Computed example of a mutant assay.
Amino acid sequence: VESINKPLDEEERRYYARVTHCITALQVCVLIILFCLDLQDYFYAGYVSIVLVAGFMVIGK
């Protein structure tokens, strides 16, 4: 985690960006599978949780 005392270098930023993209892609795949299996309650719960996390990250920025 980046802090004032320990900033991330460019290589670490690229690594964490890659990991974040992989995790997000996996979550989206799971949501698509839930939607296709007609498990709407679980789909909406996952969708809302992703939106909430994104919103809190923007607010915290």
Rank of each mutant, 00 (worst) to 15 (best):
C22W: 06
R14M: 09
I50Y: 12
L34A: 04
I50G: 12
L26S: 01
G60Q: 06
H21E: 15
F35D: 04
V48P: 07
V51S: 01
V51A: 03
K61V: 05
Y47G: 05
E12S: 01
R18K: 14
V48A: 12
H21A: 14
D41H: 14
L8W: 09
F56M: 14
L34E: 00
L52R: 15
S3T: 00
N5T: 05
Y42R: 11
R14Q: 09
I59N: 14
S3R: 06
V19P: 10
D9Q: 00
K61L: 05
E11Y: 10
M57S: 14
S49L: 11
E12P: 04
L34H: 00
Y15T: 12
L31D: 02
S49E: 04
V53G: 07
E2R: 05
Y16S: 04
L39D: 03
I59K: 15
A45T: 13
V28Y: 12
R18M: 12
K6T: 00
V28C: 13
E10I: 00
D41G: 12
G46T: 01
L37A: 03
E12H: 07
Y44T: 11
I23Q: 00
A25F: 10
A45C: 12
I59R: 13
I50W: 10
V48I: 15
I33Q: 03
L39K: 02
I4Q: 04
D38I: 12
I59L: 14
V1N: 13
C22T: 02
A45R: 10
I4M: 12
L52P: 08
I32N: 03
P7E: 00
C29G: 10
R13T: 02
I23V: 05
V28P: 09
L52C: 11
R18D: 15
I59A: 14
E11H: 09
L8P: 02
F56Q: 14
D41V: 15
I50N: 11
Q40M: 07
A54S: 06
V48G: 05
L31T: 10
V1E: 15
K6I: 08
R18N: 13
K6V: 08
L26F: 00
I4P: 06
I4D: 10
V28K: 13
L8T: 05
V48E: 14
I4C: 10
S49G: 02
P7Y: 03
R13S: 06
L8I: 08
Q27T: 12
K6F: 07
F35H: 01
Y47L: 10
V1S: 13
V30A: 06
V53Q: 12
K61D: 04
L26I: 03
M57A: 14
L39C: 07
S49I: 09
G60L: 02
A45S: 11
T24M: 15
A17W: 00
I4G: 08
Y16V: 03
